[in-house]
Each structure stands twice: as structure tokens, then as C-alpha cells.
Amino acid sequence: MDRLLIIIVSGDKERAMLGMNFAMHTTIDTKLVLFGPSENLVTEDDDARNMASKLIENGIITTACINYVKDKPAESKLREMRIVLEPVGKIISDYIKDGYVPVTF
């Protein structure tokens, strides 16, 4: 395994931060997708937002699910963070087809 796809679903800060810290410190090609309650967490919690910003700067986070945040306050906040919002089903499937191994938090 030399490619890792981390999917953060949980809105629980401890669990989500664990996954984001893991993504930040892997030594292989790693991508991270925000999905569900984690999208709210990174817009509402300072620690989670700061960690997400670092992951964005490093090209690890690029995408979050538009279907979860559509017409909610988190939508504009995620866009301000430069996260692309789109349905993630195809994105996750494509990463797996490209050899990324999924891990969820």
C-alpha cells in the first residue's frame, strides 16, 4: 500500500482530529475527503479548522461533500477555505480505482 484515502465522517472532535493528524503525518501519498458531520466540525471548531487549513495547504484535503452542506452555513465557510464542494461518491470511488486504500474516521 503506497496510497491512502482518509475519509473523515465523524463530527466528534477527538475522532476527526485523530484522522486529520494521521493524514498530516503519513509518509505515503495521502488524500483526505470530508464527508458528513466532519464538514460542520471544521467550520465551527478552531482546532479542527486550523488542522484542516494545514491539510489544505499541503494538498491533502481538496474535497468535501456538497450534498451534506448545501444551503447550510458550512457551505460558504468551506468555500472560503478553498475546499471544492461536490458529491463525493464518485471521487471516493475514483480514488479507490486509482489504488488508494480507504480508512475512515
Results as ranks from 00 to 15, higher is better:
D2V: 00
L4H: 02
I6M: 14
I7Y: 05
I7H: 10
V9W: 06
G11I: 07
K13Q: 14
K13E: 12
R15E: 11
A16L: 11
L18K: 09
M20L: 14
M20G: 14
N21S: 11
F22M: 14
F22E: 05
H25N: 06
D29A: 12
T30I: 14
V33W: 01
V33Y: 08
L34P: 03
P37D: 13
S38M: 04
E39S: 04
N40Y: 11
L41Y: 11
D45A: 11
D45G: 12
D45R: 05
A48T: 09
A48N: 08
R49E: 13
N50Q: 11
N50P: 04
M51Y: 02
K54Y: 10
K54F: 10
L55F: 03
N58T: 10
G59H: 02
C65I: 04
Y68M: 07
V69L: 08
K70I: 08
S76Q: 13
S76N: 11
L78I: 11
L78V: 06
E80Y: 09
E80K: 12
M81R: 00
R82K: 15
V84G: 02
V84A: 14
V84R: 09
V84L: 15
G89I: 06
I91S: 03
S93C: 08
S93I: 02
Y95F: 15
K97S: 04
K97G: 01
K97N: 04
D98Y: 03
D98K: 07
Y100I: 00
V101H: 12
T104K: 10
